[in-house]
Write a protein that binds this DNA or RNA. Structure first.
Lengths: 206, 206
DNA sequence: GAACTTCTTGGACGCTTGTCCCACTTCAGG
DNA sequence: CCTGAAGTGGGACAAGCGTCCAAGAAGTTC
């Protein structure tokens, strides 16, 4: 019997919940399964969280915060043409998604669960707000690094990035097809390169 | 007591399953709920389907077939510039998604469920195969109608279309924000217009 | 009309779920 | 040492789940 302050117990349970959700899905994330993963008893779960819904909410909020913190890992690479830089980043993103398939699956399930449940429904908008903020940071870093401004407002660039990554993730999860992913990386690269005015016009003809 | 041949009963149950899944989610689609929606007894469900998984599989297969059949509704519009034509179609798609939020939610949940379950996992690839086929049909119709060929293989255009629509749906479901959707329609329009070479270069600089 | 297949029905089973309670142990403060 | 708060533990509860069975009703075939 290891005694642990509630707050720490909460963090353990949230971590366990994320693990179980990634491994078994939201449907398989019963309180007993989560308690077992955290190495504690069922009653301790209810001591830390009033209900399963409260634990789920805390888990999503944790992921929202985490996604806000994981932005800063954009290092300055050497001088390369914009297209290559964009493609490299998209490819790195895809590689990360491929390496953590269940994580993406779990996050998606969690998002849909939150969309459905009235008491959780404001969370997805918050999550995507963080996504947009992160994408905005990346977009601004790109423009600064390349010395070229975007041809459309950064806000729209950020949303475009999220659209591309979402589409990429969904297609990859569904098809598990590397060739499809390859096409989508090319498509995403073209789209973003066009927004940098790289090689073409400004993307908005008469 | 209404006697119905098994095959017809199966169709009723599939329809009921789709309804319940859209309304309550996959998690809420219990056999009892589906039976009640279909107006029959629980035992009849098991007479028509060996297990809940079998019903789920039949439901997804039904949706795959349905998505294959729903392609042909692309009427020939008047002579308009390519950008406007693309934008009109994306906007119509968004309007349809907005009008049937739960349908998109249910389809997404069902897809993720199938991705998780080993016995259902080949289905998402099949579903997306149909999506790509549908998108290919639309892309070819566009090129024919406008008299302009795509600057990349149609296969890639189709995948790009699916990427855009998936990204659009996900962002819409999560944010419920019309302004976000507006940005994404603009982004999608730009992307596809570029693939038609409409107004700009060919999208692939040196 | 009897035999037979096809379908419906209600009820039961074993299991898992979220929730809750109460007794117990640990630890801090006086 | 004692008191009270904090946290743990096991067990119970009702409810819901998928699955299955045995019996009966509705047609069909001869």
């Amino acid at each position: 019997m290891t005694r642990v302050p509630v707050e720490e117990r909460r963090e353990q349970l949230i971590a366990a919940a994320i693990d179980v959700i990634c491994d078994e899905g939201v449907a398989g994330a019963s309180l007993r399964a989560i308690a077992a993963r955290a190495g504690t008893s069922l009653a301790s779960v209810h001591y830390a969280f009033a209900s399963r819904l409260a634990l789920l909410q805390a888990t999503i909020e944790h992921l929202i915060d985490a996604s806000a913190r994981s932005v800063a890992d954009l290092e300055a690479p050497p001088e390369v043409p914009p297209r290559a830089l964009i493609e490299a980043h998209l490819r790195a993103y895809l590689a990360d998604v491929q390496a953590h398939r269940n994580r993406e699956l779990g996050l998606l399930e969690l998002t849909l669960t939150a969309v459905r449940d009235p008491s959780l429904s404001p969370l997805p908008a918050e999550l995507y707000g963080q996504f947009y903020a992160a994408a905005t940071g990346i977009a601004e870093a790109f423009a600064k690094q390349l010395g070229t401004p975007w041809t459309v407002p950064v806000r729209r660039v950020a949303r475009t990035i999220v659209m591309i990554t979402d589409g990429l993730v969904l297609s990859w999860l569904a098809t598990d097809d590397a060739e499809v992913a390859e096409d989508l990386i090319a498509a995403g690269t073209d789209t973003l390169a066009a927004l940098l005015g790289a090689g073409d016009g400004d993307g908005r003809p008469a």
